[in-house]
Amino acid sequence: MSNVIVSFRAYLDCHLMVTNPLDYVEPLGKAGASGFTFHVEVSRDNWGELVQRIKSKGMRPGVSLKPGTPIEEVYPLVEGENPVEMVLVMTVEPGFGGQKFMPETMDKVRALRKKYPSLDIEVDGGLGPSTIDMAASAGANCIVAGSSVFGAPDSAQVISLLRKSVEEVQKNN
């Protein structure tokens, strides 16, 4: 009898809505996080240091913004000397799952895609079979889905549908 060891590398995307994200860079880096996304609303005083520390721990920096935050607030982080590599547009108010998707947030996704054609743009909140096409068509290429996947009778089917929608839009653009 032989032992077979199977290994794989999953991308662990950590999105933190905390008042001092600098406190979490070291522990998440040690834990093996792949990406570290912080909120633009709480990090204005130390963006540069935060992005540098995230990168120094081998993680990919991202910045998130809530539905009411103007999109222009993330531009300095995307265009800076040491830029973030992803912008996460919250499509619900952060804090709890199961909220309804806010279609008006797609204007932010469209503005980001137009201004930064190669930027990774992630959307989070209310994403599922009925909203994925809207998000993908607006320019989102990274999707966070919670309730629509974990509450589905067939999670794999929902994941496949979400992935297919994003891939179709990317293929046609």
Rank of each mutant, 00 (worst) to 15 (best):
V40G: 01
E41C: 05
S43T: 15
S43G: 04
R44G: 14
R44I: 07
D45P: 00
N46V: 05
W47D: 10
W47R: 06
W47A: 07
G48V: 13
E49C: 06
E49N: 01
L50V: 09
L50Y: 11
L50E: 06
V51K: 06
R53C: 07
R53S: 12
I54A: 03
I54Q: 02
I54E: 05
K55G: 12
S56L: 04
S56Q: 11
K57P: 01
K57R: 15
G58P: 11
G58M: 11
G58L: 08
M59I: 02
R60W: 01
R60C: 10
P61D: 01
P61I: 00
V63W: 02
V63N: 03
K66A: 10
P67A: 08
P67L: 02
G68P: 02
T69A: 03
P70V: 07
I71A: 06
I71D: 00
E72G: 10
E73N: 01
E73W: 14
V74K: 04
Y75V: 10
Y75E: 03
Y75C: 05
L77S: 05
V78P: 09
V78S: 09
E79P: 01
E79D: 08
G80A: 10
G80W: 10
E81P: 02
E81T: 10
N82C: 04
P83D: 04
V84Q: 13
E85K: 04
M86A: 01
M86G: 06
V87Q: 08
V87M: 05
L88K: 08
V89S: 08
M90S: 11
M90E: 06
V92G: 14
V92K: 11
E93L: 13
P94N: 04
P94I: 13
P94T: 15
G95I: 12
G95M: 13
F96A: 13
G97N: 07
G97E: 07
G98S: 05
G98C: 01
K100N: 12
M102V: 14
P103N: 09
P103M: 14
P103Y: 05
E104R: 05
E104I: 06
T105R: 11
D107W: 01
D107T: 02
D107L: 02
A111M: 08
R113E: 06
K114N: 13
Y116V: 12
Y116G: 11
P117I: 14
S118T: 14
L119S: 09
L119I: 13
L119C: 13
